[in-house]
């Protein structure tokens, strides 16, 4: 459903390509994980797929549901059903959680807001009237972001490290939740993460390294490649991720 081909991205104000050669594919209703070390270009890739102004590719193409979207604006892509949850979501002044979630919904129905909040385990009575500003904790803000994305019922959710900044106990639950969500709203997920536990729900994965996609395929194989390149094989042997997932 999403095909990224030979993408080269020089973010606005940067002289060199941060992503120099990226190709991968996300199939319908699958969870596709993007793995790669800090600074390898994962977020940049996510912004470019979303169509953010500062991240127009200088070459390559992005196809979504058989349609070339390389030159579409953010709004146009969002209307086609693509959305993004930021790694560090921005804070707004004077916008309530409820209004924020409703902004992306077509029917703006109150009970759908409650439902989205309950999916991310936020008490809607407590949070609906709060502002999406600095008063939310880091983890709360990320949950609100996830709720807003889910409420849109998108066809493709790009989630940039939704697991960072959440308390440890909820990792597993989060992946389970993503699994439930994709089944409930029938959406595909492009999941950027560092955590091997995501393998529990991942259908496939791509490894990105210094701006280049190295390998796409089944999650354990890609994870193994990541560990090899990161020279973490010793660690990996102790935790046999190849066998695990």
């Amino acid at each position: 459903m999403l095909k990224v081909k030979d993408l080269v991205i020089e973010p606005r104000g940067v002289k060199k390509a941060v992503v120099s050669n990226a190709s991968f594919e996300v199939r319908e209703k699958e969870i596709h994980v993007i793995l790669g070390p800090n600074g390898s270009g994962k977020s940049t890739l996510a912004y470019s797929v979303m169509g953010l102004g500062g991240y127009k590719p200088i070459s390559g193409s992005i196809t979504f549901m058989e349609k070339d979207i390389t030159n579409l604006s953010v709004t146009e892509r969002a209307k086609l059903g693509i959305t993004l949850a930021w790694q560090e979501p921005v804070r707004f002044e004077g916008i309530t959680v409820s209004d924020y979630i409703k902004a992306g919904m077509s029917n703006r129905d109150e009970s759908a807001v409650d439902h989205a909040l309950s999916l991310v385990e936020l008490d809607s009575k407590k949070f609906k009237k709060r502002f999406v500003d600095n008063s939310l904790s880091g983890g709360e803000r990320k949950r609100v972001e996830l709720a807003a994305v889910v409420a849109m019922e998108p066809k493709l959710m790009i989630l940039d490290e939704p697991d960072s900044g959440l308390d440890v106990i909820v990792y597993d639950e989060l992946y389970q939740l993503l699994d439930n969500i994709r089944n409930e709203v029938n959406s595909s997920v492009l999941l950027i993460t560092h955590r091997e536990e995501s393998g529990e729900v991942a259908d496939s994965a791509t490894l990105i390294w210094e701006g280049k996609t190295i390998l796409s395929g089944r999650f354990p194989i890609v994870m193994h490649k990541y560990c090899t390149m990161a020279r973490r094989e010793d660690k990996c042997r102790k935790k046999p991720c190849l066998m695990k997932y």
């Binding site: 979303m50 953010l52 102004g53 604006s73 953010v74 709004t75 892509r77 969002a78 209307k79 693509i82 959305t83 993004l84 930021w86 979501p89 921005v90 707004f92 002044e93 004077g94 916008i95 209004d99 902004a103 992306g104 807003a148 849109m152």
Partner: peptide
């Protein structure tokens, strides 16, 4: 960008941000 990624046009997004402020 965040509001536009939810499907708002730039104008609608500016409006929502200004109203909030």
């Amino acid at each position: 960008d965040t509001l536009m990624a939810r499907g708002l046009t730039e104008e609608e997004a500016v409006d929502m941000i200004v109203k909030g402020m």
